[in-house]
Design a protein around this nucleic acid. Structure first.
Lengths: 227, 227
DNA sequence: GAGTAATGTTACAGATTTGTTAAATATTTA
DNA sequence: TAAATATTTAACAAATCTGTAACATTACTC
């Protein structure tokens, strides 16, 4: 059951190479070398992931990215931005393009592949079921209740959202920035230390006498739901 | 009491796979690979849910869908349309097929299962029985009377509709927006805080000396019928 | 058409949650 | 071991959210 990747790339050799390699990996590939066209095709086809060249003749990658991220129906499709080394590199880093990741050309295909896989993995669990469990922790999204060892736990809204997010991929380590983006929301302006505080509060809430702690701190990296 | 799922699918391997997996999940499965036949079988058997392939040799999925949705007796049976990725996908989305959901082949079975469960859950209460109860609260839809502990309670029209809706899925938390949409109606232009006021009024009405309160507030999320 | 009931809005008090800060701990590095 | 770096936690002020009374408007009843 292969994922569908959409490539937006102006330079023919690169496009050919990408398509060839991605298909060899078993992905379904669609492409366009024209910004406007790409935009409408992506909205129409809803691929699982977009590779987006920064430099396009008609519409810059950043614009496409912005348009896509504004559209409710496709905003969840992850985007990897492809930039030329040098001039534009820093801009891309600096600007908040909304892209999930970026790579600088020339890049190694294995690395790109690794990032693609990682992104696809992250997006998959969007198939949200009504109940999620991790060990003795359970969250029922229908009633919005949380249980530890069958005992109900009361959480504030932020802590609930935080747990709801973490439990989608237990053991995965998220940076503070990722958590802010996913749990707090995109535009919001909050110190990254604030995450610490909420993690602490969540820890205290889900903590139970004689049970293992469920949130792991990964120094200088972030947090994960794990014991 | 397991749900009964009817699969309309032309491609043998897919049909076999679906049947096998669904039965493993405990569902009762019937099927047909022929449009005309499916149509009459569905009307006859009245399954709880239909999986409907878009491409059939004799009668297109969309036609079947339309026929079913026109028939008073089966129009409430939810339909999940199965479409091939690519060509027909957009048509299905765009056209108002009347299907409750659709999935694009190839799909992941767990995802399909999640959607099936969600639909069954959502639709089950639509098979509205004349009476619904939650604990000591009873609503008789025929006479439009509400009782708490055998004692009749008088509710205004809005409060009645609100309770009628909430009691379909007790414990499920609904946002103010959902309630507005479901109880007030789609287009209507009402402040979301208005819901609060009606919740308060409903609370007061169904409240009885020495009985538990029956409506739960979930801060920053909404309300549910529960104590 | 007067009287009654139902509905939607607003304002405000009270409750809860949140973000920030700073000090205390913990961990890593030199 | 000391210094540097990172995390935990308590405390507090600010922000957000909810419940409800009061009132204006609309809809209904007789």
């Amino acid at each position: 059951m292969s994922a569908h990747i959409f490539v937006v790339e102006d330079e023919k050799p690169i496009l050919t190479l990408l398509t060839y390699n991605l298909e060899k990996e078993g992905y379904k590939v669609s492409s366009s070398s024209n910004g406007e066209e790409a935009l409408s095709l992506i909205k129409e086809k809803k691929p699982d992931l977009v590779l987006l060249d920064w430099m396009l003749p008609d519409l810059s990658g950043i614009k496409i990215c912005q348009y896509l991220k504004q559209d409710e129906k496709v905003k969840n499709i992850p985007i990897i931005m492809l930039t030329a080394k040098g001039e534009e590199e820093d801009k891309v880093k600096g600007l908040n393009t909304g892209a999930e990741d970026y790579m600088t050309k020339p890049f190694s295909f294995p690395e790109l592949l690794a990032r693609i896989k990682s992104l696809l993995k992250r997006v998959k669990p969007n198939i949200v079921s009504e109940e999620a469990t991790y060990l003795d922790l359970k969250i029922d999204r229908e009633s919005m209740k949380v249980f530890r060892k069958e005992k109900e736990i009361s959480l504030g809204p932020k802590e609930y959202k935080l747990l709801d997010f973490l439990i989608k991929q237990p053991k995965r380590v998220y940076s503070r920035e990722q958590l802010l983006e996913q749990v707090w929301g995109d535009d919001i302006n909050v110190e990254s230390r604030t995450v610490d505080v909420h993690i602490t509060r969540l820890r205290q809430s889900i903590n139970i006498e004689g049970a293992k702690p469920l949130i792991r701190t990964v120094r200088s990296a972030g947090y994960s739901l794990e014991n």
